[in-house]
């Protein structure tokens, strides 16, 4: 198992696409978390960016005390989509390149290979979270220094909860990409289906349920995206007014946590069962 995990880390570390995806997530976080709000703050009270929100509140959102909000606020949707792409390209690539048969003809069993692969992905997701936090923290420090803002940081427990929540949200989307890649033995189709689901279908479904079919709200509240948003909402303590797209209190934090853990378990089991039973062409 350790050998499979180390091999996976080597593959991930040296694969350019992994770092391109990370960079895309980082840039999106910084643009929507810091650059645009700061421009809004800097260009005045009447700017559309800050309409209805006092400038002091906008600035407060950019200071170190809100660093975790800015780090993981985009995880349920945008960074989640990138994590899904990561899972799909890493697992699906083994099928499209035919490397799975090369690996399996060495010694490890199929379960060992897949578990090593998933552990490698979850490790990479943890690095993403830490990397994005570091970048957001630097931006917060810079803005606080320039604007003479406070340097208060969230408590260690809040930081830890934020890291764990963000990591779980990205991990679930990454595992979703991985299980789709196993199902379709491919890269493009899982990415297409997964991204359409994250960016469109869930929001559309939630909208239809809210306006036309309120009896089906329980279904909308069981979706992975709704629970990802609810978990981020719970661990950051955002308010409904300053929450980014996809982050809302659809369900309680505890329920969101257990639902996401259940999704993660289902995705792992599905991927394992499928990989162990199928013919590798």
């Amino acid at each position: 198992m350790l050998g499979s995990y180390r091999a996976e880390l080597l593959k991930l570390r040296k694969r350019g696409a992994v770092w391109v995806l990370f960079a895309a997530g980082l840039v999106l976080s910084l643009i929507f978390g810091y650059l645009l709000p700061y421009l809004g703050y800097a260009t005045g009270e009447e700017n559309q960016q800050t309409s209805g929100i006092p400038r002091s509140e906008v600035l407060r959102g950019l200071l170190p005390e809100r660093v975790m909000d800015n780090t993981i606020g985009g995880y349920p949707v945008f960074a989640g989509a990138l994590a899904l792409v990561l899972g799909a390209i890493v697992v699906g690539g083994e099928y499209t390149w035919g490397t799975l048969k090369t690996i399996l003809s060495q010694r490890p069993g199929r379960g060992t290979v897949l578990v090593g692969q998933l552990l490698g992905l979850l490790t990479m997701i943890a690095l993403w979270v830490v990397g994005m936090f570091a970048a957001c923290a630097l931006c917060s420090i810079g803005i606080a220094a320039v604007e003479n803002g406070s340097m208060n940081w969230p408590g260690p427990l809040d930081l830890l909860t934020g890291f764990a929540g963000g990591w779980l949200v990205l991990s679930v989307w990454c595992l979703a990409g991985a299980v789709l890649a196993v199902a379709f033995r491919n890269v493009a189709l899982p990415i297409g289906l997964g991204v359409v689901w994250i960016l469109g279908v869930e929001a559309l479904f939630a909208g239809v349920v809210t306006s036309l079919l309120p009896d089906l709200e329980f279904l909308a509240d069981a979706m992975p995206g709704a629970n990802a948003g609810a978990l981020v909402f719970a661990v950051t303590g955002m308010t409904a007014t300053d929450a980014p797209p996809g982050v809302r209190d659809a369900v309680s934090g505890d329920r969101a946590l257990w639902t996401l853990l259940a999704y993660a378990a289902v995705f792992v089991v599905l991927a394992l069962v499928t990989t162990r039973r199928r013919d590798i062409a």
């Binding site: 050998g3 499979s4 080597l10 350019g16 390149w97 035919g98 090369t102």
Partner: peptide, 28 residues
């Protein structure tokens, strides 16, 4: 058992050496 089934399949973005390194990890 050592085998090469159909065309040789390796990670295109890795060097030959790194490909063998990771296979050595898998094989112990």
């Amino acid at each position: 058992t050592g085998s090469m089934i159909e065309s040789p399949a390796f990670y295109p973005y890795l060097s030959g050496l790194d490909n063998l390194r990771l296979l050595a990890e898998y094989a112990g």
